[in-house]
Nucleic acid binder design. Structure first.
Length: 575
RNA sequence: GCACUCGUAGCUCAGCUGGAUAGAGCGCCGCCCUCCGAAGGCGGAGGCCACAGGUUCGAAUCCUGUCGAGUGCGCCA
């Protein structure tokens, strides 16, 4: 059991004992009680707000309550000293042995240090990427892919049962356009000069092979055939090949989904009808006419009666149509049924969306709330745009000409690990610049490098010690000094960082934590530059060397654990 | 017009789901560097956390309003 988990348990037991002793009334809400490291290390190792948050409901004053709690905290063998500060904070200083034990715990749990079972029994479905199957992955998809994947890993590490899912939008008008574009390439493959790809169709050369495959397979029979004869076939073939390409692109980033759900199959299986029927029974879908949109006056506005979902009941500003006037399902209508399906298999849902879809969050949340009767936690994480920069200048992209920057190009240029780490160096909903030069820069202000460098230095220490032939012994933890203990304390926070990141669905916190940890390690290392007695490897002092090396290795372990959560491989040497 | 995401140092951004004197990197100023792994180190200046109210022991964080930025808006996907 890691330290912070243990202290939370201590706190519970202590409050139970106080209730039993009549020092606290029963039934107090203990949720706001926290045990955290204080911001200012001079306040101690751990602080709790228990006295302040419980005083009022207990009908006493914080400082008096604090005194009682302090007496019980002092009785804990791990606690060296307790003090009451400010408005009623309880600050604790722990014994050095406690920290030494935590360091051993890191060694003992190794790759599992930070893992928890807080999500035990809770299944979570993370849907991410879900790019339209109309072309290769480009950089617009990249960030959501990495954030979703890292989040899924994080949730697994926190004990959840996780499904990584991709929704294939293979039922709308876009894929028909794809099929027509492929038909052109098919005719081209049979020797026809199709000239320039007309406006409105996909011009990308990646469709050429699809045309070839169709030509070799079916010959010329669809060249002059009416669309009705080939559209479905071409669409299915094209989508299948696009998905193959997308999977290959994702594999470059180390991303593999568990489930690929097809919108077309969902519709063929009658799922939207089922959802609609249920909603109608509960008076959440009705036939109505939408008001004309406000703001700019649409020229071709015609009031038509459509089946509408009462999303206004859940805070949306307008009820939303689930079917079009031609009888087909709207994207929303199908998506609603899709989320219903996911919610039947998982306790919690997470969608990773591009920020350009922010406007549709409310309606889908409304739909999930309605269909699950408010029971399922459902988060939509919005991921902001990434601006690509080269030499400080934005990289120009034109979709029309098909010369957008693909994900494969970027991964090939800077590497998977750099892409993944960089995508997590910012809160998901904050805009981000991706500068080709900066992300591979070997300097302190590039966290990708800085963290890897720390890990490489640690690996190097092990090699050095061996080369120097220092006889290593069982580490004597009493030789850890103040600076070393500070490092242990920071490392010991890893489990709570993981916990918080998982709970809040914010994988970027891992990247920031690792950067802090790396900075602390580098600082410790640098002390050896000024004072040779502070170096890790002291050839004349195997005892000190052993314990410092042990500490360094555990820091390395934490870095590896954190990087693993981000899907990044730790380096043992900088090229 | 409406919704969403935001507004923190000169710049780029953190801020642990309400805690103590708001942090980091870059940039700027001053020292130091033949150092286990070069790709630097130490220190300093720099803030009305957009603004105004409210909630409470306590607010950058929660609520309301104002201002400002970005994104999006129809039966598209």
């Amino acid at each position: 059991m890691t330290l912070y988990v243990r202290f939370a348990a201590h706190m519970e037991a202590l409050l139970d004992a106080m209730e039993a002793a009549g020092e606290l009334p029963g039934g107090l809400n203990r949720k706001p009680v926290t045990v955290e490291p204080p911001r200012d290390p001079s306040h101690g190792d751990l602080a709790t707000n228990a006295a302040m948050v419980l005083a009022k409901p207990a009908g006493t004053n914080p400082r008096e309550l604090a005194g009682k709690i302090a007496a019980r905290l002092e009785a804990l063998p791990e606690v060296a000293e307790v003090s009451v500060a400010g408005p009623g904070f309880l600050n604790m200083r722990l014994t050095p042995e406690t920290w030494a034990a935590e360091l051993r715990e890191i060694e003992h749990l190794a790759g599992d240090y930070g893992r928890s079972d807080s999500g035990k029994g809770i299944s979570v479905n993370v849907e991410y990427v879900s790019a339209n199957p109309t072309g290769p992955m480009h950089m617009g998809h990249c960030r959501g892919a990495v954030v979703g994947d890292a989040l899924a890993t994080l949730l697994q590490y926190a004990g959840h049962e996780v499904t990584r899912e991709y929704y294939i939008n293979d039922a709308g008008g876009q894929v028909d356009v794809l099929a027509r574009s492929v038909h052109l390439r098919y005719r081209e493959a049979l020797g026809e000069d199709v000239g320039e790809i007309p406006e409105g169709l996909y011009p990308g050369a990646y469709l050429v092979p699809v045309g070839h495959h169709l030509a070799t397979h079916y010959g010329s029979r669809f060249v002059d055939a009416p669309e009705s004869e080939w559209l479905v076939l071409f669409r299915q073939t094209a989508v299948a090949e696009m998905m193959e390409m997308i999977r290959a692109d994702l594999a470059l980033l180390g991303i593999h989904h568990d489930v690929f759900s097809s919108e077309a199959e969902l519709q063929a299986a009658g799922k939207p009808e089922a959802a609609e029927a249920w909603l109608r029974v509960h008076d959440l879908v009705y036939d109505g006419v939408l008001e004309a949109p406000k703001g700019e006056v649409p020229e071709d506005w015609e009031p038509v009666e459509l089946p509408l979902f009462r999303s206004t009941k859940y805070g949306d500003d307008q009820d939303r149509p689930i079917k079009k006037s031609n009888g087909q399902w709207t994207y929303f209508g199908a998506d609603m049924a899709y989320h219903y399906q996911k919610a039947q298999k998982s306790d919690q849902l997470i969608d990773i969306w591009g920020a350009d879809h922010a406007g549709t969050v409310k309606r889908i949340q409304a739909a999930v709330a309605a269909l699950t009767e408010g029971k399922a936690r459902f988060d939509v994480k919005l991921v902001q745009m990434v601006r690509l920069l080269r030499d400080g200048e934005p990289v120009k992209m034109s979709k029309r000409a098909g010369n957008f920057v693909t994900l494969a190009d970027v991964v090939n240029e800077v590497g998977k690990d750099v892409v993944r780490f960089t995508m997590l160096t910012r809160k998901a909903d904050a805009q981000m610049d991706f500068d080709f030069a900066k992300v591979v820069e070997a300097s302190k202000d590039n966290p990708v490098f800085y963290v890897q460098y720390a890990h490489a230095r640690i690996a190097s220490l092990g090699r050095r010690a061996q080369e120097a032939g220092v006889p290593l012994s069982e580490p004597d933890m009493s030789l850890l000094g103040t600076e070393e203990l500070a490092l242990v304390k920071l490392a010991a926070q890893f489990p709570r960082i993981v916990e918080g990141a998982a709970q809040n669905r914010e994988p970027h916190r891992i990247a920031f934590y690792l950067n802090d940890l790396a900075a602390a390690f580098h600082g410790w290392w640098n002390m050896g530059n000024d004072d040779p007695a502070r170096r890790v490897i002291m050839v004349d002092d195997p005892q000190i060397t052993s314990v410092r090396l042990f500490l360094a290795r555990q820091i390395g372990q934490i870095i590896r654990n954190g990087l693993a959560l981000m899907g990044v491989e730790a380096l043992s040497e900088m090229q």
